[in-house]
Design a protein around this nucleic acid. Sequence first.
DNA 1: CTGTTAGCGCATTCAC
DNA 2: GTGAATGCGCTAACAG
Lengths: 353, 353
Amino acid sequence: MPVDGRRGEELSRLPAAPGPGPGPSRPTSADVARHAGVSRATVSHVLNGTDHPVSEQTRQRVLAAARDLQYAPNASARALRAGRSNIVLVPMLRSATVPGADRFLESLDRELAARDLVLLMHGDRTTSGVRGAQAWAELRPAAVYVNVSRGTPAAVELLRRAGVQAVLLTGAPRVDYAPTVPLDPAAVARLATRHLLARGCRRLACLVPSGPLAELPTQRYEAVMEVAAADGVPVERVDCELSSDSIAPVVDRWRDPAQRPDAVYTNSDPFAILLIDKLRAAGIEVPRDIAVVGSGDHPLGAALRPAITTATFDVPAIARVVASSIRRLLDGADLDPGLEAALRPHLIVRESG
Amino acid sequence: MPVDGRRGEELSRLPAAPGPGPGPSRPTSADVARHAGVSRATVSHVLNGTDHPVSEQTRQRVLAAARDLQYAPNASARALRAGRSNIVLVPMLRSATVPGADRFLESLDRELAARDLVLLMHGDRTTSGVRGAQAWAELRPAAVYVNVSRGTPAAVELLRRAGVQAVLLTGAPRVDYAPTVPLDPAAVARLATRHLLARGCRRLACLVPSGPLAELPTQRYEAVMEVAAADGVPVERVDCELSSDSIAPVVDRWRDPAQRPDAVYTNSDPFAILLIDKLRAAGIEVPRDIAVVGSGDHPLGAALRPAITTATFDVPAIARVVASSIRRLLDGADLDPGLEAALRPHLIVRESG
DNA sequence: CTGTTAGCGCATTCAC
DNA sequence: GTGAATGCGCTAACAG
């Protein structure tokens, strides 16, 4: 399955190498057949459990031969013949963008495995659109699950034309050119904001991590703005990084109660933890002086004091409906009806706000 | 590339489906050839940049046709014919075991891409040995990079017989049946311990996270023990989890100076952060009363006060030598000579110890 | 009922 | 510049 290595070239190319040289043993179904004294067709029937009748005796002989030779069918040949695979390809997410990414992939693998599908992650985190689709299509996966921002209409069309049976997109703007898991990463920000407003907060601030991964934090900031604006509550935007130097000047300004918001939404729990540490050092108490709400439910958030109030998604539940939806798509059905429900964020109210 | 979905069965099976049905368009190299008015051989030569001479004019015609049809070569057919691919397969690591896992994979992808290789992660995190090798072999990758604990001798043999050109193992006990990246995850623990001893600490404790992922922490605990024992320094083993309830009783006991170690190694920075929080709440000051050293260089560790002293690996450097070694192995050379040097852990001395 | 023969799928590459 | 063989496994059609 050669796939394009260098990004940004016409098409892939195989590294120079000695052609289909026989190599060592590399057992094929023909070897198994020879070993068992039957034809390749019989081997195939036995190993695949087709409905074709085979005597128990030959069956055992074939199985034994396969075991002896440690035969592993060549997925390439198989996929080529079948014109389809049971691979679900997920281009790797831009790291740290989504806090629970790793947990999600772990759950997703379990759920897919239970549905006879294999999860494969493509290491490239940046290539998108047609160029990305090109790389993904080469593997001829049964399904591709990718963010809308990378799954452009042209990309989706290319994948479909390449024979990918199910292209499932995920992300905020629901699109019409492919089934979409309408997971809005900003939903946690909205939920957190509504919570703070309901608690009577009237002056908000929002920490916005800067850097190359700022897309999501910015979306969340806008969501906070929007919800707060509906109540006529102002939101101070605080651009920062996860470092002491970055937070210090802000906290310093907030020493003055007149300059101080009464609540802060921080985009991720580590930022909340950092902020609270700096506030404490400045003599500002959480939640008495300022309420702080994060998101992502980081384990440290629950363990430290004050424990972080956080808005988060139910990661395993989302993995389940995504896997189920992919399976259904492959079987010609619609998305899992439980999708919307599983995507609703929830709030874990602890001590910080 | 159908791969076994259910774990623990004889061999894989394709989900029932309508055979190699023609499907929609699914452009093949034959389509491109037709479109450009040339033979498939020519298409192949042009698209792969072989040294076979092709007139500039036809070259352009072929490229244009490929673009028009959004042609993506079928990786299965290609691999089948070529008997080799440019895929490097990495079975996904048991999550959170290695703190920098995600960073590592990101760097590794970049380094591999620069060497014309594509990184693919296999979603299954648990299957190992022959069973795992079976699943990995089906993809016929050019190389597999996996922990020694999963890459048993039988697994390595199976992979080799299946035509995987480079099997690179990683992990502590260097083995002789396959090239190994002797990355010892316990090395950071040794380094941290030596640092604490050099600072005059004479009574150590070691936090050992429990749970299903306890293998690594236990190895590290043993490393701490070993180094400390050489100096006649005792080590208290503290089994715990990353939660308030888990740490509280320990800290409570340490309120009594007579019961208290003078330094703690915590296996990961989040544990150090948690511990310091609880110690502070108990009126025990770090590093005055107890020194604390973590590992993994978590960003929060640098940002909080006291900043966490941590022992860590140079993740991007390791990714570089691993990628380089894989490339060299594929080219018939030996491991990158810079390997050992890149694997050395280093200490970031900050405030906590 | 049991097993076999034969052709296909797609891209690569040798030889004319 | 092209024809044709090739790699590996699946499966429809067929023969005992």
